[in-house]
Structure formats: C-alpha cells, structure tokens
C-alpha cells in the first residue's frame, strides 16, 4: 500500500535551514570581499580565487570517489573552504600555491579525518599554514599595489604598524586601498559579509566580538613600542587578517565550541594568541596560528564549559547532585 501513514518520532516539522543552506549563506557573505579583491587586484585575484575554489571542490570529489565514499561536494563546504583559503593568499602568488593549499586543506585537513564535521582544525587555515611553510617567500612578498596592480616592494602596512609607524589612513584601510592578502584588504567588504552572517543567524556574535575586542584592547595596551596604553586599537583590528579570521575562520562550526560561553572563551583565546605572536613573536601576523591553536583547544573547552542546566540555579541540593553527576 503506497499511501500508508508515516510514523516517526516527534518533532514532525523541521526548520528550513540545512547544512547546504548555511554553506550557501557563507558563500554569499564572501561575495563582497571577493569582489573587492577583484576590483583592487584585478584578474590576478580572480585567478587565485578560482584556482583555490575549483581545486578544493575537485579535490573533495576525487578523494571521495577514490575512497568510495558518498560524494558531498553538493553541500558547498568544499567551495567555502577553497574560497576562504584563496582570500588569505597574497594576490601575486603563482597559481600552484592556491591549488596545493586547497588540496592539502581538503584531503589532509578535512577528508582524512572523516570529512565535514569531524575535522579538528579549520581546513582553510590548515591549507594556508601549509603553503606558508612550503613557500614562505611567496606568501610574504607576493604583494600587488591596489588598483595599479604592479608588483609592490616593501613591507605590508602590518609590518610598519608593528614597528610603531603610522600605517595608512583609516579610510584606505576600510575601503581596502592597501597592500595585503586578497580578502583582508577591504574591511568594509568583510564587515558586510559578517553582518550578513550574523543577521541570518549563521554565526554567533560571541566569537568575533570576543576576538576583536580582546585584540583591540591588547593593541591599545601594547601597540606602541616602548609605551603602554597608547596603541591604536582600530588599526590593530583593521590591519592584517583579523577581521576575516574573526568572522569567517574562528566561527567555523566544526572547530569552535558548541556552547555560547565556550565561544566567548574561544574568541578571547584567539585574541590573546594573536597578540602574543604579533608583539612577542617574530611574525607580523598571527591570526592563522591563533585560530588553529584555539581549534585544538576546542575539545577541551567543550569538555569543561557547560551551561548551567535549567533548575539547578536556586536549589543547593540540586546543584550538588549535578556535581556528583560528573560535571
């Protein structure tokens, strides 16, 4: 009988949002930053982004075919990873950099650990860390001057900023008229995308707010060499990849804590590590490693940061019982 009634456990209706829908939202949120990158860095930017995205999707497809798992490129998560990776690269890198980075991100950082949902670090950042270790020269010098698109010499504004010098006007920083990786130049475009994700309820405001707040406050305290409490928090946040990291990388579901309080801790921790690397490390930027390290701390945060269950707040006996229960 074809028209038998279906029996399932309640609830019988589901929210409209699916994994695919969420990933599509992230892609949409990345459109402003990608467009800004193409506007400032031209065809070079477009080719880098295309190479990283296409090779990420292809890598996922081929890997899943090779190990005979169901193909999941339809959930757009590989496309998101590839696009994010592309946005963290300097504009003038040779095209094999995004390709190798994407393949590493998808195969080694994601699929080997079981695919979407079981990877332990953010695949895009793992890919970036890999190409950074593989071709450090490309990754720290392949800059282009915005708009004119000729090869730029000299340090990025972040280098100058670390030395305590002024680093361009705020307007230039906001629009993106400066040296930098594809996705980190235009602050407005990233904030636009982040706002879209917040509005759609895709990401939790806690991680970006805690991260950028910690970072800004730390820059204010330590930002000026030789003097405390005279740093420039705004430039500290706008320079480098902090914005992109805060809105798109640190908020990656799989590698961030599930509890609201845990997410706050994740943001604060990433902010502190970024500060450590920026001011006490050799390296001008620490967003990648800060977030990767907090990814590794996520299971720990999840284990120890649990919400106060309903009904345990007022009753001392119940509180004790809950404690005896194990946590």
């Amino acid at each position: 009988m074809a028209d038998k009634l279906l029996i399932t456990s309640s609830p019988h209706i589901r929210a409209a949002k699916t994994v695919r829908g969420i990933m599509l939202d992230v892609v949409i949120a990345l459109v402003p930053a990608s467009v800004a990158a193409v506007v400032f860095f031209g065809i070079k930017a477009l080719s880098v982004l295309a190479a990283s995205t296409i090779s990420a999707v292809l890598a996922e497809y081929l890997y899943e075919k090779a190990v005979r798992r169901p193909v999941t490129v339809g959930d757009f998560s590989a496309a998101v990873t590839g696009l994010l990776l592309g946005l963290t690269l300097p504009p003038a890198v040779p095209l094999y950099v995004p390709v190798v980075g994407s393949v590493f991100a998808i195969v080694v950082a994601k699929q080997v650990f079981g695919g979407l949902g079981t990877n332990f670090v953010n695949p895009a950042l793992a890919g970036r860390a890999f190409v950074l270790a593989a071709w450090p020269l490309h990754m720290t010098s392949a800059w282009l001057n915005p708009l004119t698109m000729d090869a730029a010499t000299g340090a990025t504004p972040l280098h100058a900023f670390k030395g305590g010098q002024a680093a361009g006007s705020l307007v230039d920083l906001l629009i993106g008229n400066r040296l930098g990786s594809l996705g980190e130049t235009s602050a407005i475009a990233i904030i636009l995308g982040g706002a879209y994700l917040l509005m759609r309820g895709v990401i939790d405001y806690r991680i970006p707010v805690a991260y950028l707040g910690t970072l800004g406050f730390g820059v204010f305290i330590f930002g000026k060499p030789g003097a405390l409490f005279q740093g420039d928090p705004l430039r500290g946040i706008l320079l480098g990849g902090a914005l992109l990291g805060a809105f798109f990388m640190a908020t990656d579901y799989v590698t961030s804590p599930v509890t609201p309080r845990g997410r706050t801790y994740m943001g604060i921790g990433a902010g502190l590590i970024t500060l450590l690397i920026r001011y006490w490390g050799d390296y001008p930027e620490g967003v990648t490693y800060a977030i990767l390290l907090m990814n590794l701390a996520t299971p720990l945060i999840d284990k120890f940061v649990v919400p106060k269950y309903y009904g345990y707040a007022h009753d001392a006996l119940a509180r004790r019982k809950a404690k005896e229960g194990g946590r």
Binding site: V100, F130, A133, W135
Partner: peptide, 10 residues
C-alpha cells in the same frame, strides 16, 4: 620544475 616546498624537508 616548480618552486620547491621547503616544508617537506621539515
């Protein structure tokens, strides 16, 4: 044939 990846030696 390509830019060597120094990470592979680490």
């Amino acid at each position: 044939l390509f830019e060597p990846m120094s990470v592979m030696l680490t």
